[in-house]
Nucleic acid binder design. Structure first.
Length: 355
DNA sequence: AAGTCGGGGAT
DNA sequence: ATCCCAGACTT
């Protein structure tokens, strides 16, 4: 889609559906836009509104902010988090006050100030000064990765560079402030991270992610370096006929509905469960830890081997458990690591001639 | 390129 | 519970 058409459709949508009643959208000035942009870094709109109003009531101008003490500035920031933002805000206010209260009018000079990066500088210049400058915040990243079907994590330098280029290609020469606001509104209200409302989107006809049904896959999340490790204990319990105890897993979650070994978060829960089931065990043997990799985590499991010493109380098992001959487990469709564990320990035909 | 800062909302 | 949010800065 040509940039002119994208801008036209986006701005037409913004005129009807865009947010125009936020506190920092009234009495627009470089100071108020700057303050709002800093407060909105990594912070959601609903959380900022009250802080912004209290802040501009106490510090109506950049001069007032510069003349205040840092401790009072921090007091008005308390609860917003990322307190380096408040310290940088105060420092930058003093720099600007020393410049006769005038904000720099270039991206280079603005982003040289403490706490102002490239995107914040672009937002200030486009919204407060009417300059044709692009931004790339979380909303615009999400909108553009989807619209252009950009693969890869946006935090990666290569991907971010490409997104900056796309962002600048779509930035108009006219209505620059409205365009910047519109892109953020689109990302915040329609092109949301989960369950985007694509049918209401003004640029759906050019969206690559919508066309390829990839909206739920984009933008790609930060790649996990080391997968989280989840540790569990598997009880490998045999009765005196050498049958193995299997349990049906809950219908949802990993291995949903499959038969598997009873699983516990730790040794104590295993003991408690045996007590509750009226299982009297032999002295348990712990096998070395095994690992099984899933796409989203690593399962570390420790098999605990034991033999049942008392007769089975079938009433308590209530059909959620079953005792299976080791030679028959292959017909059961067990989870792969469980099957491997049982085969390795009970189905090796090395010395079970007399059984 | 990766780590840090932070309270709060969404899921 | 985890992930993410109108990011910027340091290591």
């Amino acid at each position: 889609m040509p940039p002119e058409q994208f801008q036209k459709q986006l701005l037409a949508w913004f005129d009807i559906h865009g947010r125009k009643d936020l506190p920092w959208q009234q009495n627009i000035s470089p100071y108020r836009v700057w303050l709002s942009e800093i407060m909105l870094q990594q912070t959601q709109v609903v959380s900022v509104i009250a802080y912004f109003n209290r802040f501009v009531t106490r510090f109506p101008t950049v001069q007032a902010l510069a003349e205040a003490g840092l401790d009072e500035v921090l007091q008005h920031w308390a609860g917003l988090g990322y307190y380096a933002r408040a310290r940088n805000l105060h420092k930058t206010a003093q720099l600007i006050a020393g410049n006769n209260g005038e904000f720099p009018q270039t991206v280079e000079e603005l982003s040289a100030l403490p706490g102002i990066g490239r995107s914040t500088a672009g937002a200030i210049l486009s919204i407060a000064c009417g300059q044709s400058q692009s931004i790339l915040d979380g909303n615009v990243k999400r909108v553009l990765t989807r619209f252009h079907g950009v693969r890869g994590w946006p935090g990666e330098t290569k991907v971010a560079t490409r997104l900056w280029r796309i962002s600048s290609e779509y930035t108009p020469q006219k209505r620059c402030g409205d365009y910047t606001q519109a892109m953020m509104d689109l990302g915040a209200t329609l092109c949301t991270r989960s369950k985007p409302r694509c049918t209401s989107c003004p640029v759906i006809d050019g969206c690559e992610a919508y066309k390829l049904n990839l909206t739920s896959q984009l933008p790609e999340p930060k790649p996990r370096k080391t997968l989280p490790v989840k540790q569990v204990f598997f009880l490998v319990l045999q009765d005196r006929q050498h049958r193995l105890l299997l349990e049906r897993r809950p219908p949802a979650g990993i291995w949903g509905g499959l038969w598997s070994l009873p699983e516990f978060a730790d040794r104590q829960q295993l003991r408690d469960w045996c007590l509750q089931q009226d299982y009297q065990l032999s002295e348990p043997t712990e096998l070395p830890v095994h690992r099984h990799g899933f796409s989203h985590y690593q399962l570390e499991y420790i098999p605990i081997l034991a033999t049942l010493q008392n007769p089975i109380n079938y009433v308590m098992e209530a059909n959620s458990a079953v005792w299976y001959k080791p030679s028959d487990i292959h017909s059961l469709g067990l989870p792969a690591p469980v099957k491997r564990l049982l085969q390795h320990n009970y189905l090796e035909d090395h010395d079970d001639k007399n059984d």
